[in-house]
Design a protein around this nucleic acid. Structure first.
Lengths: 118, 118
DNA sequence: ATTAATACATAGATTTGTGATGCATTACAA
DNA sequence: TTGTAATGCATCACAAATCTATGTATTAAT
């Protein structure tokens, strides 16, 4: 399940989750929403109705695996990348950045932009 | 109908169409698809099933107006921005760029990026 | 004559995000 | 101590956007 340009037109959430997990090894759902919120300066607020189905789908696709841990009396479901997920994550980030560049190129064609590597 | 962050998560097509029309005054459907194809180096291929409903919606929302002209024996439906469309176009481009920046920030937080104005 | 390209359009299916709702615990304030 | 915010997971019904497939029709090229 590689994220093609077409999938990226809708659905940046999958790649974003994968990307976050390359940097944090292990995260739980609520943590992911808060992280995205902070990194985006409050501009992107992922709702539970978006997040959990997305996580379940990524797990069903074999990109994530989960384990439940009790922390402070609360059950947390931690997700981490599988080997397949690590590979897909690199690919997905590349394609997402490529998409950002492309869209930028379309709406602002007179300016060249380098995003640099990921 | 302003393009909010939420709409942009899916739906870059509307803003892209509006943006193209700020630079070309008058375009017809097929021309728009070819333009996007060329500007994106063949990466984004808008299908008719996406384009025409999108154009119809923009027109229904009062952002575009159309006129049919016969060119080379073929009927072309030219679209151009209404006054309302021009205003929305500026806004939509800003929000789209803001969204691109935000997503980039999330997946590549160690690097600051300036897109500059539109 | 047939195919590719041009040019428009719609119906149906799919994807994906949101809102609403539900359950449950912990921390804090009134 | 009682209520509320925050934490934490989850699902369902709905809406919006796009794609696939299909249809029509003309022109250009082979």
């Amino acid at each position: 399940m590689s994220f093609t340009q077409k999938e990226l037109l809708k659905g940046t959430l999958g790649p974003i989750i994968l990307n976050l997990l390359t940097e944090h090894k292990k995260m739980y759902g609520y943590e992911i929403t808060q992280h995205i919120k902070e990194l985006s300066d409050g501009k992107i607020l992922i709702k539970e109705g978006s997040l959990y189905p997305a996580l379940h789908k990524l797990e069903a696709d074999g990109l994530l695996e989960s384990e439940q841990l009790e922390v402070g009396g609360r059950l947390r479901k931690y997700y981490k990348l599988t080997r397949k997920g690590k590979q897909e994550s690199v690919q997905a980030s590349k394609e997402l950045i490529s998409f950002l560049e492309t869209v930028h190129l379309i709406i602002n064609p007179n300016k060249t932009l380098s995003y640099g590597g990921i």
